[in-house]
């Protein structure tokens, strides 16, 4: 066990009186723990589409995507980017950044694009 765990006195006894069902009863050795549902599964199980639309629920309080045009910011330096490289699709601030962009491997270009959700995703 990690030393800091021991130090912080986080080592709990196996049996606890305040528990009705002890851990070792619920999960006997060798048995896998409960599989937790993903958020997607939970939402699907809730059947929100059957609910009246005017009632707030987890899905419909989600804010819609922004309709504002995104700001033009250089992908490499973070400066304001007046230029756009048609080959790599990256935005850049000045000629020096442009040199950098053109010497970047494609892998990195894609990752920079992915940062602002502009990468080409092939499915």
């Amino acid at each position: 066990m990690e030393p800091e765990v021991v130090e912080a006195e986080l080592v709990l006894p196996a049996h606890m009186r305040f528990k009705k069902i002890q851990m070792y009863e619920k999960y006997p050795k060798g048995q896998a723990r409960v599989r937790w549902k993903h958020l997607k599964q939970i939402i699907q199980a809730e059947n929100y589409q059957n609910y009246p639309p005017d009632e707030p629920n987890y899905v419909n309080i989600d804010s819609p995507p922004s309709m504002h045009p995104c700001k033009r910011i250089c992908d490499i330096t973070g400066y304001e980017a007046p230029y756009f490289d048609p080959r790599t699709k990256l935005r850049y601030a000045n000629a020096e950044v442009f040199k950098v962009i053109r010497s970047l491997p494609n892998d990195y270009v894609q990752r920079y694009l992915a940062l602002r959700n502009a990468a080409v995703v092939l499915r």
């Binding site: 006894p13 606890m16 009186r17 939402i43 629920n57």
Partner: peptide
């Protein structure tokens, strides 16, 4: 919970109501 209750109670049983906070419109499942 395990840790919390242990820190709070050590060896007693829980005999008081518990208030849980959650996010707005928490799914019923959770």
């Amino acid at each position: 919970y395990h840790f919390m209750f242990y820190m709070l109670l050590k060896e007693q049983t829980i005999n008081h109501p518990v208030l849980i906070t959650e996010c707005a419109c928490n799914p019923v499942q959770s």
